[in-house]
Amino acid sequence: MTDKKIVSIEDRIPQLKKARKRKANRRFVMYLTMILLLVLVIVYIQSPLSYVKSIDVKGNHRVEESEIIAMSEISMDENYWGVELEQAKDQILQHPEISSVEIDRKWYNGYDITISELARVAYIREGDYYYPILEDGTMLKDQQLDQPLGDAPLLHDFERPEMLTLLTEQLKKLPESINQLLSEIYWIPNEINNYKILVYTADGHEVIASIRDFSTKIKLYPSIASQIQPNQEGVIHIDVGAYFQPYSSEGEAITPENQTESDQ
């Protein structure tokens, strides 16, 4: 039978003392680290390092950066951790041209404000001034322009608000490449089609269309216009079918009605 090695109490006491000392040292280091971190946090909060040092705005094209920062009410002399982000977002969203906003903390004393803007899909004239119309149908009454900026069509004779709303819903679906081709749009309802519109394009053509399917049908315009000879004048119809109708020699548009009259 093998003899077991017996360790006396006297031999174990130094080892127990060392273990207790190591444990006490680890606890001391942990407490000291926590105290130092707490001191650093207090110093940081009380120092200028905790103030907002930078505010960067992204995604804005028309709304000025300074206006967005002012609406957020985030100031450079404000404590970085005291900013109410949700409140700042709600205040920025009060701007009629801003559809969404995100505010992110950047490192230890900066903010990134990222916004999305509603597109301007048209202009309309009231009195002596022109006003932008957004994709949600909002007219920017606070922005009086002497002339439209040319980045969206000018609307005429839209006396019924519901027709204006329907058209803006169609215009916001258009790609920018198509929207840039539209110069002016007139609402010209008749007994047959209450949604009829006349469009003047930037390259000098006239287009008859319907509001209800305008965003779909107007995409046919470039291919039709490309087939028209430079000396040909007439009207492109995309309200019923899609075709080009040349003017007569007298300058009158050839329609089924006046064609029938000329045959009599």
Score class of each variant (00 low, 15 high):
3 D>T: 00
3 D>W: 09
4 K>N: 08
5 K>Y: 12
10 E>I: 10
15 Q>N: 08
17 K>L: 13
25 N>L: 14
26 R>P: 07
27 R>H: 09
28 F>D: 12
30 M>H: 14
32 L>I: 00
33 T>E: 12
34 M>I: 07
34 M>F: 15
36 L>S: 10
37 L>A: 12
42 I>N: 13
45 I>K: 14
48 P>R: 03
63 V>L: 04
64 E>W: 12
65 E>Q: 13
71 M>W: 09
72 S>Q: 01
72 S>H: 04
77 D>H: 14
78 E>H: 15
78 E>M: 14
80 Y>N: 02
83 V>Y: 07
84 E>V: 05
85 L>S: 01
85 L>W: 11
86 E>Y: 15
89 K>P: 03
91 Q>R: 12
97 E>R: 14
99 S>Q: 08
99 S>A: 06
100 S>A: 11
101 V>I: 06
110 G>Q: 02
110 G>M: 06
111 Y>I: 00
112 D>T: 05
113 I>W: 04
113 I>D: 01
121 V>M: 04
123 Y>M: 01
123 Y>P: 01
125 R>T: 07
125 R>K: 15
131 Y>A: 00
139 M>C: 02
141 K>L: 09
148 P>K: 00
156 H>K: 09
158 F>C: 03
159 E>S: 12
161 P>F: 13
161 P>W: 13
168 T>W: 02
169 E>R: 05
175 P>N: 04
178 I>W: 07
180 Q>A: 09
182 L>I: 05
185 I>N: 01
185 I>P: 02
186 Y>Q: 06
186 Y>T: 04
187 W>H: 14
187 W>E: 00
193 N>Q: 07
196 K>R: 12
197 I>K: 00
202 A>N: 12
206 E>M: 13
209 A>I: 03
211 I>A: 01
212 R>M: 08
213 D>Q: 08
213 D>L: 03
214 F>N: 00
216 T>Y: 14
216 T>M: 07
217 K>C: 01
218 I>G: 03
218 I>E: 02
226 S>H: 14
227 Q>R: 09
228 I>S: 03
228 I>Y: 09
229 Q>E: 15
231 N>K: 03
234 G>S: 06
241 G>Y: 09
241 G>R: 09
242 A>Y: 11
245 Q>I: 04
256 P>E: 12
256 P>F: 15
257 E>D: 14
